[in-house]
Design a protein around this nucleic acid. Structure first.
Lengths: 140, 140
DNA sequence: AGATAACAAGATATTCGTATCCTATTTGAC
DNA sequence: GTCAAATAGGATACGAATATCTTGTTATCT
């Protein structure tokens, strides 16, 4: 339902949320989240370009959240790397059905809307706050 | 959110639901639903193997729904060609988190569950009944 | 200067969608 | 009964998108 890329991005963000204000390196994130380092680098760059994280090069550098964890939603993360394909016009590109979708696509889009809403009102802090002492993400 | 294949399968099923008991050929379905004929053939085979439609070869042959349209849900169709990837165990394959997902994956799976439920209680007849006179799918 | 780590761009691999071709089966005409 | 046309079934191959790896460059710190 979401791409591998989106999954990776979310893992990385949750991980970073556990170290507020601290720089975490690609290596560290990759290891903890079990994401291939090579690919993670690209994902992190996307997140950086989207303004969700900031990066610093060189010794002591790495990545860190650009905003407080309670101000970043799952939706933003997913949207940054692999947006939810809401259906706004009939995929069969019919002249009719321009403003009113076929029943089928209406239903499908409704489902996506549910997902979107669910994502919109979940922040990173929700994800690390809930777990208590247990490993928040699945690290170690 | 769903694959192209699932989208095609749904279009075909909705189309077939409009011609109960009648055989419709791959060509006819492809044209009406704007799906590439070559690929549609494969999708239809999958649906056939899944028992959702029946096929007949030869002159006058084609495909037809295997059950009344009010007994086939969107869920069944999607599941036949490209199942919803419910998350049952932590993708990071951690020894812990076996029976209790990380908060992140818990949330994600919740969203998929919403979709699944939405799909489960929509039948093909819901999709062709709603539209009234208007083109039910986007044909014509 | 040297070490560390992000950045950038390309190369490779894998999956998914698509097209093409050939085969098997059914029907209808003669 | 035979033949030809219609139609699904199956296999193969190609292209595009996605995921992964590799290598070199640039910025930052000590």
């Amino acid at each position: 339902m979401i791409s591998q890329t989106a999954e990776y991005a979310l893992r990385a963000m949750v991980y970073l949320a556990q170290y507020p204000e601290q720089s975490r390196t690609n290596q560290q994130i990759a290891q903890a989240t079990r994401v291939p380092t090579g690919y993670l680098a690209k994902v992190l760059q996307n997140l950086s370009r989207a303004g969700l994280i900031t990066s610093r090069r060189g010794l002591g550098g790495g990545f860190t959240l650009a905003k407080p964890d309670n101000q970043i939603t799952i939706y933003e993360v997913v949207q940054a790397v692999d947006p939810i394909p809401r259906i706004t016009s009939c995929p069969l590109k019919l002249k009719a059905h321009r403003h009113k979708l076929c029943p089928l696509h209406q239903r499908l889009d409704n489902a996506w809307e549910l997902v979107e809403q669910s994502f919109r009102n979940t922040t990173l802090s929700d994800l690390i706050g809930e777990a208590g002492e247990e490993g928040v993400l699945c690290e170690e």
